[in-house]
Design a protein around this nucleic acid. Structure first.
Lengths: 296, 296
DNA sequence: AGCTCTTATGAATCATTGA
DNA sequence: GTCAATGATTCATAAGAGC
């Protein structure tokens, strides 16, 4: 919850264009976190992104160099990505990208796993449903900003009391919450103890009744924003899509810049951010309502 | 549960030596599955395996060539591995290994994630607990043996509610199909109690009362043995350690060969297999007890 | 408010058909 | 023959409606 005065100071801007060009405007070391989910390599030319797997690394590297320039030395770069299947095999372009980014000077500090609890259904003779994506964590330096306490998870004495009455599915689900820090019921639990999460995040993909679709749920950037930035810091998403990262940043009191090459996306992102702003302000107004009324 | 006669026909052998040499004894295409968790690369020389990260790929490749030779063309090679942290960064030798194995002719069909539900505790300033490992799935051919039904899991509780009435969207989806698919499909769903798993495995690490610790729980090889072999097939673990893979294979009615270069391990594995055999036979004896008594 | 129940849909992949 | 489009298959979640 943020007061109006704080919100007013917050900046959230969406730019239309190729991040390679747009980022030229920004000074060195502006951002504390780059979080993004770039267009995945795709064999078909005319889909969004349309970068062929063979050319992906080459296409990505100059952009990554700009991310590196505008990132603070204490900052983090989190890349949400997953290789598709082509011709029955997993692509190797993500592996090659990791190797190439290291050559560019990035440290491959960690690989977080996003476990998609409700992955896409389907059945094939040679594989199961793909229920995970990589969240690659790169840094410029060995020492970087990390607020581990910000993503701690409440834990109850669930082992003794509840475990027996639950089915296996519930246990998995419970573990999921402990691992991720999300889930509505968590607020209701008595906060007896708090535990650090692991490097496996259990989040469902958002599949509400929205007319557009984000690549990832808001809770994904939320988690990394809380972990790698403080309030008032600057977050960048160079492939912002429908604006999810910027909305998350704004709601958490961080400044953010989003860039997208598709006009329909940058416009959509602006709308998303705007309506999120309205919602936040409304909440803030209600919270401060009594004072405001009296002052008038 | 297997009868004595079946068990008697089962072979489970442990060999001492470097798998590169030992495998020379075996003919081409003997095995249906190679499941293993090799010694991890380690900077410190005197630990088990003692292979340096820089030399890991070079060390692994000739052995992988032998695995490939002794594997049936319909077989699978599952490699449980995870890069350690060195100097604050994740090693890249696993990525390089995947690329090298593809060059050797393997197909990188899939990457399964083993989510370690109760992973090792610990706290570091720059990372969380590591709660996952890779299970890399390589094959020789695009079409290979896969018994998906053998690893199906109970469905979530959503099913009962869902099936009471079909949503309009379901109807639309069904209608998009040709002709009589509608009724057929409902029947499919109604009888379905079990669902196919995803490529994320939720298994706890074993923390039993044993005085030694296996690298992975028995349930890990069990899952892949059920998935990629039939009863009576042949399983190989070229770095068998304490024998977990062979025990799992035997209990599932598969023949198996285990190899380890450390004598203490190959001996331990033999003991493990032997006591597992005893346990199995005892169970079988009890099951068949009535007949046996009468026959005597 | 807090349940239960309904409904849409999601960075999927393979086999088949069509150009 | 190569490449692109379409259909078939499938599970779990959360928003929204109803009570």
């Amino acid at each position: 919850m943020y007061k109006r005065s704080q919100m007013a100071a917050l900046k959230t801007d969406i730019f239309h264009g190729d991040c390679l060009d747009v980022l030229k405007k920004f000074p060195d070391g502006k951002f504390d976190l780059v979080f993004t989910s770039p267009p995945y390599a795709d064999r078909r030319k005319h889909t969004y992104g349309g970068v062929k797997p063979e050319e992906y690394v080459e296409w990505f590297l100059p952009r990554a160099a700009e991310f590196r320039r505008v990132l603070k030395s204490s900052g983090s770069f989190v890349l949400n990505i997953k290789e598709k299947v082509e011709d029955g095999e997993r692509h190797t372009f993500v592996l090659e990208l990791i190797l190439a980014l290291r050559k560019q000077g990035w440290l491959w500090t960690e690989e977080y796993i996003w476990h998609k609890k409700n992955c896409h259904p389907g059945k094939w003779p040679n594989r199961f449903r793909d229920a995970w994506e990589r969240c690659l964590h790169f840094t410029r330096e060995k020492h970087f900003k990390m607020n581990q306490e910000a993503v701690m998870v409440p834990m109850g004495d669930w082992k003794e009391k509840r475990l027996r009455s639950l089915g296996t599915n519930d246990i998995v689900r419970f573990q999921s919450r402990v691992g991720s820090g999300f889930g509505k019921n968590i607020a209701n639990w008595k906060d007896r103890e708090r535990a650090y999460p692991s490097n496996v995040l259990h989040l469902a993909t958002e599949c509400g009744n929205k007319d557009h679709s984000a690549a990832f749920p808001k809770s994904l950037p939320e988690w990394f924003i809380k972990l790698f930035t403080d309030a008032g810091d600057w977050v960048l998403d160079p492939f912002v899509g429908s604006g999810t990262t910027c909305v998350a940043a704004q709601e958490l009191g961080r400044n953010s810049i989003g860039i997208d090459i598709k006009r329909e996306f940058s416009e959509l992102a602006e709308n998303e951010v705007e309506s999120a702003t309205m919602a936040l302000m409304e909440r803030a107004t209600k919270t401060n309502g009594y004072h405001k009324k009296n002052k008038r």
